[in-house]
Nucleic acid binder design. Structure first.
Lengths: 138, 138
DNA sequence: TTAAATGCAAACGCTTTGCAATTGA
DNA sequence: TCAATTGCAAAGCGTTTGCATTTAA
């Protein structure tokens, strides 16, 4: 289901700013920050503002159109929800981010639910550590 | 090994401010924020400043005396490293934090190392989700 | 027509920094 | 003694907010 349709169905306005935010999110190869979205929006729509981007992202989060991931950079990154869930191995040294299939953590999710009654949200979990290349250098 | 000794051995000065930061970290039942540490420091040492707390925590991180955990509150919390490692299940609704033994994630760590050559740092991982109580209410 | 959405600027909360004064070793 | 450490104030950063104006439906 397209983001545009969901907005309209729920009675939200389809403004050019929102469409450009959606476009930036979809064009992003990977996770994109609010500032980066704003750069793209502003390039095409000079009188736009960052606050619109933040307000739009907040709305999209509420509608579950996007997910947020904290890679420990002091800012948060966004990702279109329908692109699917996966996890990230973030190298502390070189900063490289490896994607990891959702299935790798599924047994953990099961364990937490079974043993602790905790329904873990493991979408877009960012796991810090050191990648193999950096470990070899050491 | 005490924090005091480690500081001295590595040639760092043992200032009253640093001792009070160490004390605050040790007295904390759980993870403590920089601001909370500062409150305790300032109560006993009125002319202290937050920047000292941040600089001290940065030093302690470098010396691996403390670990940092991001509970998604927009600030980071600190924990004495020697108190041992554990993970956290953070309920998105009620905010409750459950502690989880390190062993629960050890198989995940092994998998990541074996299959991806990634040395994951799973100390003080914070996993978001919903606790059993909140799930029952729904 | 009109409530929803925007732009702008100012404020926010946490953290960092420059610099002169202080202090532990 | 003197480099390490501090306090202070100001700035930095990502994010949020108040309010008057604009706009999609």
């Amino acid at each position: 289901m397209s983001c545009h349709k969901i907005l309209q169905e729920k009675g939200y306005r389809l403004t050019p700013q929102r469409m450009l935010v959606i476009e930036a999110l979809h064009n992003a190869e990977s996770h994109i920050s609010a500032e980066e979205i704003y750069e793209q929006l502003h390039a095409r729509y000079p009188y736009s503002s960052v606050s619109t981007v933040y307000r739009t992202l907040e709305l999209f989060k509420k509608l579950k159109l996007v997910t947020e991931t904290d890679f420990g950079e002091g800012r948060v990154r966004y990702h279109v929800a329908e692109k699917g869930h996966h996890h990230h191995l973030v190298c502390r040294r070189c900063g490289k981010v490896m994607d990891l299939e959702e299935s790798v953590l599924s047994s953990l999710k099961d364990t937490l639910l079974r043993d602790f009654g905790f329904d873990a949200d493991l979408r877009h979990l960012a796991i810090p550590g050191e990648c193999s290349k950096c470990r070899k250098k050491e």
